[in-house]
Design a protein around this nucleic acid. Structure first.
Length: 360
DNA sequence: TCTGGGGTCCTAGGACCC
DNA sequence: TCTGGGGTCCTAGGACCC
């Protein structure tokens, strides 16, 4: 029989409709109905958006990110459920544990995604085995993309939906990708696609053929050449199984009604700063920088930051830094959102790690 | 469609030092 | 007196992703 030699592959597993799927497992009676998950589940609450919507809800034009009030208007019969992050975390961990029982390397990428490194001569057979096992053990469907690197595998899993398997490697990259718009690439969004189009770079093929020096001039020394690298179907191929070490942490709140009283603003800031300091202590991390984010009525967002003289875990120091940073904001307009973000000192065990994005 | 929350990385300009 | 060039750190903003 035809023997294909073993080699390394990157798989990308994407759980289909993850949040909706978890909710439907808990509420089987809702299967087949339009369901929208978001916020506290109250669709009359302003400034709350959908985390996800089932296929039945999508048929009414509802999609994730849409305000719940709009979703309610489009589909008054829809069922609205609150988000339950701990439930999704638990379901995610179950899936990841199932994957790790197989002879593969698993890199968790959020709740509903994972990159999988494997050495095999039949990646489709491996993908099918993983799909069946995840389905059998967790009752969740997933799509799996197969590639030579993470970028290819990630795009392939989208082509595999729903619950399928798709292979996108350097062999078929040009055939599959060349005529697609540049924002089909993982890392190029609407804004960058528009800027590229202004330079007559509309398709993946055009971007791949562009001069890297021109790209560097127009889009920056790192990003410009990186875009072409993406268009050529290249990407990171190393699967990192060690847990991710966070660079920082943040908490923010959008108020259903704008704050106009300065005392209320500072009170909310204290709450957020205390929370963030507590989170950092919980994680055993020292804080080096504090950023205060303010969004005012015409949806204008501003940040001010303070670098601490000494890294600290002391909540009083963090809260005080947040307040002096807030004082540098212009607070003449009603406040829609307050956020506090902190940056962590690198952990002593290892220095700064290379990020998941850009590279050469 | 009046627009969430939590992350990561890059860029550009200015300060400051050698 | 007027000039250079490099390096690093800090700040604010922006883009992208889940």
């Amino acid at each position: 029989m035809g023997t294909t030699p073993q080699r390394d592959w990157i798989l990308h597993l994407d759980l289909d409709q993850f949040i909706a799927a978890v909710e439907l497992l808990r509420h089987p009676e809702l299967r087949g109905r339009p369901v929208v998950v978001g916020g506290t589940g109250d669709p009359t609450q302003p400034r709350t958006v959908a985390a996800t919507a089932t296929y039945e809800a999508r048929e009414h034009g509802i999609h994730s990110g849409m305000p719940l009030r709009t979703a309610l208007r489009r589909c008054p019969d829809a069922v609205f459920l609150p988000t339950d992050p701990p439930a999704y975390e638990a379901a995610s961990q179950h899936v990841m544990a199932v994957l790790r029982e197989h002879p593969v390397r698993v890199e968790v990428w959020g709740w509903d995604e994972a990159f999988i490194g494997a050495t095999t001569n039949d990646p489709e057979a491996l993908a099918a085995t993983l799909q069946h096992d995840v389905r059998r053990r967790t009752h969740l469907d997933c799509s799996i993309g197969i590639g030579d690197n993470k970028h290819q595998a990630k795009l392939a899993s989208a082509f595999a939906k729903p619950a399928g398997i798709y292979r996108l490697t350097s062999d078929n990259w040009a055939d599959v990708m060349n005529d697609r718009p540049t924002d089909a690439l993982w890392g190029i969004g609407a804004k960058t696609a528009r800027k590229l189009a202004a330079h007559n770079l509309r398709t993946v093929a055009q971007l791949a053929a562009a001069d890297p020096r021109d790209l560097a001039r127009h889009f920056g020394p790192t990003n410009g050449p990186w875009y072409r690298y993406l268009a050529l179907g290249k990407g990171e191929a190393e699967v990192v199984t060690t847990p991710w070490i966070a660079r920082g942490h943040s908490r923010e709140t959008t108020f259903t009604h704008d704050l106009t009283d300065p005392g209320t603003v500072t009170a909310h800031l204290t709450t957020l700063a205390t929370q963030v300091a507590h989170d950092a202590r919980e994680a055993g991390r020292e804080i080096t920088r504090v950023t205060v984010k303010i969004r005012t009525t015409p949806f204008q967002t501003r940040t001010r930051q303070t670098t601490l003289t000494t890294p600290t875990t002391d909540p009083a120091t963090i809260t005080e830094a947040a307040h002096t940073t807030l004082a540098r904001h212009d607070l003449t307009r009603p406040v829609r959102l307050i956020g506090v973000a902190v940056e962590y000192a690198p952990t002593t065990s290892e220095g700064p790690e290379p990020g998941p994005t850009p590279g050469p």
